[in-house]
Amino acid sequence: MFCRQQVAEFRPHVDEVKQAGLELAIIGSGTPHFAKAFLEDLKLGDLPVYCDQELKSFAAAELRRSWGTVLDPRALAKGLVAMKYKQKKTMGDATQQGGVLIVRPDGTIPYHFVSRFAGDHAKNATILAEVKKAAA
């Protein structure tokens, strides 16, 4: 449900990212079939969703992966808030956490958020502020 919450709550801001001139990629650990179902279920339209079942990009982005990040008490508290985004069958790696990066054409990373536990998401206001800085 955390992944649903994260994407559904960011969806209204996608146009701001496009207008700022940034490319957008939403990357998950499931299969293309599951990604397509995810898009359709959440009515996300043509959001650019990609799949990395081998988790190589997650590892390269230094994102956390462990049962400890799932069982963290803070994840349970976040779960109560996210319950309206009903959990479906886990379609990917349950122990893999997410994050947000901005990468410039010169390869620099001006923004790098690493989720510490399940449900630990970057604030959309922070992401959008960083998007504007990267576009400047």
């Binding site: 992944c3 957008l24 959990q87 790696d93 994050g99 576009a135």
Partner: peptide, 12 residues
């Protein structure tokens, strides 16, 4: 151009 990469846990 710059890219925003949003990594999500899975598609569940």
């Amino acid at each position: 151009r710059p890219a925003l990469l949003m990594f999500v846990r899975h598609f569940g």
